[in-house]
Each structure stands twice: as C-alpha cells, then as structure tokens.
Design a protein around this nucleic acid. Structure first.
Lengths: 121, 121
DNA sequence: CGGGATCCTCAGGGATACTG
DNA sequence: CAGTATCCCTGAGGATCCCG
C-alpha cells in the first residue's frame, strides 16, 4: 500500500508539521534544548534576536506538537523549564545538523554568493 | 580560538543561511532534487501548492547560495534543469530526514495535539 | 520570572497577466 | 517552457505595557 502521508501533497497534514520545523526560531529552540532543560528567560538570552512574544508562541506550538515539555516549579517567583520530549529527541541530531551546517559552510556560501553576484549583477 | 560563526548570535551571517534553509519550500525543493536534475515545471507539479513566483524566487536564492545549479538547454522551447551542487549535496541527507520526519511521526504529533487540546482547551 | 494583551508595520507570498 | 511584472493583502513578528 501507499504511504499514508506525503509532504509533497498540498493539504497533507505533514505540511503543517513541516511548517513548524521549517522555522528558524523553532530550530534554534530545539537545538538549544539538546543538552537538557532550559528556562524561559535563559532561552531568550541565548537565542539572540528572538522576541518574548515569538519565543512564547513558538514554545507553545512545539509543546502542542509534543516535541517539548513544559514544567512549572512553584517557587517565588515561578520557575518554568522547557525540555525535549522523547518525540522531540528523535529530531535533535537532524536539527543540529541543519542548524550548524550554516556555521560549517558559511565561507562556501559567501563565496558562491560573491561569484553569483559578479556574473549576474 | 572561538568558532568564527555562531547561529545563536544575531547579526551572524549564518542566520541568513539558516533563514534560507528554514523554509518549507526550500526544503522540499532540495529534497526533490535528490535523485537528479529536475525541470522548472516538473518541480512546480511535484511540489503541490507552490506558486511559480515563489518557486522561481526560491530557486534563485538557492542558486545564489551555491546549493543548486541551473542549466539552460537551447531547445525550442527552452529547457531548464535544476540540480544539486556539491555543496547542496552535503545537505541532502539532513534535509530528507527533516522533510520526511513529519511523514514518519505524523500520528504521534496528531495524538500529542489532541491530548494538549483536551487539557488546555 | 514568565509570560499575556495590544497595536502596528511591512514584506512574503498568492493571483493574474504578459513575454522571449 | 520558463519565467518576469504588478497588484494586492494578510498575517508573522517586533515593540510596548501590564500582571500573577
């Protein structure tokens, strides 16, 4: 029988998941959680440039999709930790590879852009 | 010495590359080119839901970044083939893993969403 | 500390039409 | 066939203020 899901099809629910993963902030968050639970403001500081609104939104969506978990500690003031779930952990290697590919290949990309611009202008 | 590039830093050029890769359409295009060169309208048909404008734009950006190549055949009418470059090929496994993770884990995600919604409402 | 609620903008992307 | 050119519009995301 055919595969039940196909990302190449419009209206396939997998497109929704792909949309979530194909997001700069989501990738950085998932990658940042790789080494263990992290608190909200810690994520905010580590992921330079993200706004608290977008961080909050993205965390909620990732939690809804079962990729991360949220644990509240009744301290004063309250402490909240985000961590990868088992499902989320199946993505860490892939996410890390993608997120850090840019770091490893930045020079090659920069050179390609330069070459492209010099020809096409 | 420190790593020259760091995706966690704002203003780091790697963020630009991450932005390119963290795009649903770019991922699907790169994945679709895995098995060899594909023509423009063929890509358009295979990747259901993409508009020609976005396809054209995304292809141009990917070409500029050195991830794909564009070859024109002087037939009538003209034929254009897109293919992965050596640089682009270093991404195929990662991209495929991400793009198809959704297909493999769709049921788990759907279940997580259902559970989340039943509690949070 | 960890967010929620608002307001605002602006650029990404859809629809349509045209061309070498 | 493989795009380019416009117009248009919506919704993602930044900035700001507030709260338990």
């Amino acid at each position: 029988m055919d595969q039940p899901y196909d990302v190449y099809q419009d209206r396939c629910p997998t497109r929704m998941v792909l949309d979530r993963l194909a997001d700069k902030w989501a990738l950085l968050i998932l990658d940042r959680l790789r080494d263990g639970p992290v608190r909200f403001n810690h994520l905010r500081r580590d992921i330079a440039g993200i706004s608290q609104k977008v961080l909050s939104q993205t965390l909620k969506k990732l939690e809804r999709d079962g990729l991360i978990s949220r644990q509240v500690f009744p301290t004063v003031p309250v402490t909240v930790e985000y961590a990868l779930t088992g499902l989320g952990r199946t993505l860490t290697d892939t996410v890390a590879a993608l997120a850090h590919w840019a770091e490893a290949n930045m020079d090659a990309v920069l050179a390609a852009q330069k070459a492209y611009d010099s020809i096409v202008r």
